[in-house]
Design a protein around this nucleic acid. Sequence first.
DNA 1: TACGAAAAAATCGTATACAAAAAAATTATC
DNA 2: GATAATTTTTTTGTATACGATTTTTTCGTA
Lengths: 232, 232
Amino acid sequence: MSEAKQPFNGVIVYQRLRRAILEQALLPGTRLREDAIGEQFGVSRTIVRQALVRLESEHLVETQRNRGACVAEPTLIEAEQIFEIRHCLEAEVIRRLIERISVIGLEALDAHVDQEARVQGKDGPVSIRLAGEFHILLAELTENRILAGYVSELVTRCSLILAMYSRSHSSDCAVDEHRHIIQAVRDKDIKAALSIMDHHLGAVQGRADLSGDQKEDNLQSVLARYAEDPSA
Amino acid sequence: MSEAKQPFNGVIVYQRLRRAILEQALLPGTRLREDAIGEQFGVSRTIVRQALVRLESEHLVETQRNRGACVAEPTLIEAEQIFEIRHCLEAEVIRRLIERISVIGLEALDAHVDQEARVQGKDGPVSIRLAGEFHILLAELTENRILAGYVSELVTRCSLILAMYSRSHSSDCAVDEHRHIIQAVRDKDIKAALSIMDHHLGAVQGRADLSGDQKEDNLQSVLARYAEDPSA
DNA sequence: TACGAAAAAATCGTATACAAAAAAATTATC
DNA sequence: GATAATTTTTTTGTATACGATTTTTTCGTA
């Protein structure tokens, strides 16, 4: 298992920033200055740039020539389209899982939700990430890595969207509903599973209420927490 | 319409390389040395590197630390999974188009196929690209940019796959079948449209027959053609 | 004070330099 | 002559340097 094959530093910076975005520690619109990031991670701008290019090609950051990068701010139109495609792909996930999912897979799902339940109440970044990772785990259990990759990307983008347009960050992903999804999959009740998932994703309900930007300045303090992230 | 907003040179190099891959001018496994590419495009390795990072994050090139980049070589497993998801997404495209497609959209499709017919017989890179772009156009007509983006990515990856595993590059995408798809969409015959599309994509039929690599060396000559590509 | 122009600072875009690693070529040894 | 060890060359990974652009600040004028 030592085949670890150390990734480029650029990849590491990319992963850290990605997680910070997923956990809504970096909010949409946050300016991402190359110097500041490089300093936090102890690398040069060259490396930071690599990471930013990666993030841009995943639509998690937006770049303007000579103006640097910001955490992406999807429009409402984009947001709707992203949710639509997420719907579509997660429905495919459900269909595939019901067709064949292993006992081990179901156990993994249970374990994950248990973990979610444990941190419930505490409404921090961990809870947001776990909620997203539940959906990613579902997709991975299909064993189609392409599907899983797209779902993963979409989940992160949705986290971005919810950070922009949802007022209640807390109930974004109720643990109960995750349990219901597992149950429906276990029962091979495709109708129920799809309907729960539909309700669960339920598009973008809230409207923009964070018009006043309380973001922007805290880049340094946020990155400090992500510079030496303990858990993978 | 002068809002053109010049892209980074890195983006340009990326686009050129991407097209070369789509057109199967750069075959899977082809070594992509940074110096060579930079020289052809008249930019420094810094810029080439940006392009390679972009391509890697789209799975069109693979990178090994200290060993540089190659055009990706999807395994048969990956190939199957890619085709599966392409199936899934293109089915969604069909459903959406049948639900509502404009006359203008249908005309655009006709025009495109006419163009395909014009270069038919000549079995060169243009024909391969046009065949792929038909599917991308279909996806774009859904007006869901996310969906279109994923389809576009998948089409390119499939071109890569066919370059590896198909023996008859010619009949990869018959113009006739494209016409049938358009007709079925026009008739709003969803059954027919889906079935034609299914048959059209028909997964990976051929098996690996290009075990001997006749690639590798022609990087320079290939890139020369793509360095100053006339058509966007 | 408010506004606009000019200067200063900050930030980005790209090329280049240099160390480290890998690949290729050379030499030595059997 | 074939193989192993060593040197040379090539190529990559990263930091840094410098011009260009943008943003901020300063300063003058109404």
